[in-house]
Structures are given as C-alpha cells and as structure tokens.
Design a protein around this nucleic acid. Structure first.
Lengths: 236, 236
DNA sequence: CTGTAAAAGTGACAAAAGTCATTTATTTAT
DNA sequence: ATAAATAAATGACTTTTGTCACTTTTACAG
C-alpha cells in the first residue's frame, strides 16, 4: 500500500468530504483525529469477527472490505461491500449487540478506528450527524429489504446480473472504463448472489458467451451494461 | 373495533410506555397529542402504498399491520409484521425517499399519524429518542440481514418453521396458549416465507401430520414449539 | 339462507438449482 | 523455478421447488 503522508490526519484525509463526517465541525474532526487509531489490513485480514464486541467504528480511507454473515450450515453470505469513505461496524454498536457479521479486507486497506465513546458523544452533540446516521441506516435497510425480496423471487441468472451491476455501482471501473475495479473470487461472487459457486461459474461463462461480459482470471469486464441490466430484469 | 375512550390521548394510550416514545418527556408527548391524527383502518385497508410520499410516521395503538414489497413480477414479499406499540413509515421518511413498501391492516387497526415536521423536531431535540431510533433501525437491519441470509441458504421447510416461530414472537398466543394470535392467509404465509403458496400449503400439512402444529382454517396452533425450533435449524 | 367468488388443497409434471466427482488452471510458498 | 495448494471449470446426476390444472372448502354479499 502506498503511504499517504497528507492522509495521516483526518483534516487532510482524502475521504474528508466524502464520508459521513463531511459536515462535522472542525472541533469534532480534531477530536476524532486525536483519538483515532489508524491501521493497515492486508488482503484477506479480518477487521472484526461475527460474535465479538464492538468498541468503536471503522472509517475506511483507502481499500475495500467485504462484510459477511456465516449461515447456519457454515456458508458465507456477503451482505455488504465497503469502499473508501464508508464507515463500518456501526450496526452492532448502535444496536448494543455483538457483531453479527465479519469484515475482511478484499485488498490492502487503510482504516481508522474511532472509539465508541467519542463516536457516541459526537452523535449526541451533532444532531445533523445523527440524522445522517439515521439516513445511512435507513438506506441500508432499504437495500437489505430489496435484496431479500429478490432472493425470494428472482432466478439466479437475474440476481447474478444484478450483482455485477451492483459491484460496478460500488467500486466502479478501472481506467480502461470496462474492467470492474475489484478482484473477487468466484466463491465471493456466489456468496454475494446467494448461490452455489458452481452455479455462479456456469452463469458467468454463459454471460461471457452471450457477449455481456468478458472474463480474464479474476478480472471482469462489462461489455454490454444495457444487456446486463435487461438480464437483471429490474423494474424499480 | 372496541372504542377506547381512555385511549384517545397519547398520555393515556395503552401503548404509552411500550412504544419508542416511552422515554419522551411530557412536553413532547403533549405536542404529539395535540398534532396527532387518529384513524381506524379496517382489515384489508391500506395505510400507505409503495411509491407515495411519506408525510409523517404512524404509531399503532391497537391492531396488526403487514408491510410488503411488490417484487418485479408482481409477487408480494412481506418484509415486516407490525404490532401495537410499533411505529411504521419511518424508513422512507428518514431516507428522504418515497415509501418502498406498502402497509395493509391485517385486522381492524387503530393508528395515530404524527406529522413529519413534529417527528423530526422532537428527534432533533431529544437525543435519547434519536439513539432509540438508531437502535430500532439497526435492529431492523439486523433482522433483514439474517432473513436475507436464510433466504439464500435455507430450504423452505426450515424457513417455514422459522416463520411460524417468528409470528409467535411477534403476536404471541391467544388466551388458550397455543393458537397464534393472528389470522393470515396461506398466501400471506407464503409471502412471508418467500415461496409459492402451494409449497407453503403442502408443508403446513406436513407439519400438521408430524404433530408440530394444528390447523383449523386460518387458526394455527403450535403444538410442539421445540420440534418446530429443531426443524427451523437455527444456530444463532 | 344461498349462490358466487375467493381461498385452500392436491396431483402431475417441469424447471431450477444444488451436489459430487473430476479435471484443469492459477496462485503461492519454498 | 517448481511442487503443492487453492481456485476455477465442467459433466452427470439428484433434489428441491415452482407451475399448471383441477377439486374442494370456506367466506361473504345480496
């Protein structure tokens, strides 16, 4: 991971005006800056595990993280993809519960940890931040409810197409304008779609044969976004 | 529906200390009482529809409501069961979006409408309420994520057992101590489980044959909760 | 009441998706 | 650079679940 000297303070963080703290006042930003603990997680490393206690929230300044539940039979279900500027770990903290999901770095990722008490204090003092937090939770709830409905009602083919578009929305393209800007294993893709790895592999091959995508190892290129959207069959 | 004269003010509402407003101060309760608009919805009537604008939140003082998404192919997915003491309509309001779900009374239901501006104002002034709201959203998000995982990974038999236990948790039993205190159509049950109506019917019959439940029209009696729990195969 | 519509229930069949075994390719560590 | 481990791909097969057509039962309006 590149070292970002200008990035080591919250004031100069490249996500300063991109995160939920964008509207926070200088005083609060300074307090966060004083108490934050920065950390780099290598690809595959775990930020926290399902079942452990939350002691604060994580703020991602660079990198990518997946959050997942372990199903009752040990199969992973990915419930969220986290990008730079996002925070994570707030759900359990605000519920007053242990983590219900695990978080794992998808690539080398730079994260600042904000202690619980400070986060809660600022949330109490800054009602705008509290409203932004409620909006964030409401938006996530919406996403979860839509996903839940699609899992119950849509065939895997449509869900895979939707998932690819979702990855595009979340992480965007590489400079070439077609390659998804993240490397996911076929298993991760399957765990995002909610299907068996083999089924995901087969359908990806079909999508390639149909010319909608192109596959080069873990690189996925979106060749026909429109056709993919049609395949996803999204009406909302 | 029985008329509750003592129930017509928030101060005397039988859900006064059961709702999210239980810790609100007297002044705020008085303001809510002054501005609230009470209404009775008959069974089958709609409180609001997916796609329309939220102008406030609903507080249920008596009755039961289902909230559901319409899937892309027109099939309904029930995403929440609402009981007396619960509020509804807050998700869209806090997101600043239109309703993403519809709400329909499952039986005659008494509801108070709290205007948007008042709700937001009190939320801004009372940080405890704001935190309770964040907790509510976080809990709902957790529920949605668990449900999403189960939809992706568990067979319908397990999900139906889980759904019956969920209905029990939500609405409890009638005085006999075994009959679920709500009448749902087979279609509603299927839309809660996320399956075809015929599959739900078949499995309910199996559960009855196995002695776990008893069916009398729309009455469902839980005969062996433990066996049902084992069938649900829940590890968390 | 009683006819009509809606809901519940059933069977046969088709489609979708998962599982298992095996091969091939790609990483990774030494 | 190369062996070993891990991931991807593929085929055959099974299981699960959905669909359609139909019968029976229940609810309800006139």
């Amino acid at each position: 991971m590149t070292v970002h000297p200008d990035n080591s303070t919250c004031q100069n963080c490249n996500q300063r005006f991109n995160s939920i703290f964008c509207k926070a006042n200088e005083d609060h930003i300074n307090q966060i800056n004083d108490q934050k603990i920065c950390n780099v997680y290598k690809k595959g490393q775990t930020l926290f595990n399902e079942g452990s206690h939350p002691f604060g929230v994580f703020c991602v300044s660079d990198g990518k993280v997946k959050m997942s539940h372990l199903g009752d039979d040990g199969k992973e279900q990915i419930i969220r993809l986290v990008k730079a500027g996002d925070i994570l770990g707030y759900r359990a903290l605000l519920s007053g519960e242990r983590y219900s999901a695990s978080a794992e770095a998808l690539e080398d990722t730079q994260v600042c940890f904000i202690p619980r008490d400070l986060f809660v204090k600022i949330l109490k003092l800054d009602s705008n931040l509290a409203f932004d937090m409620m909006k964030l939770l409401s938006d996530e709830l919406h996403r979860a409810e839509v996903k839940l409905t699609h899992l119950a009602q849509k065939p895997i083919r449509e869900r895979l197409a939707e998932t690819l578009l979702f990855i595009k929305e979340t992480y965007g393209y590489e400079p070439d304008g077609v390659t998804l800007n993240v490397r996911l294993s076929r298993e991760d893709i399957a765990n995002l779609v909610g299907t068996a790895t083999e089924s995901a592999i087969r359908l990806l091959s079909e999508f390639k044969k149909d010319g909608m995508i192109d596959l080069e190892g873990k690189k996925i290129k979106i060749m026909q976004a429109k056709e993919l959207l049609r395949t996803a069959n999204i009406q909302d």
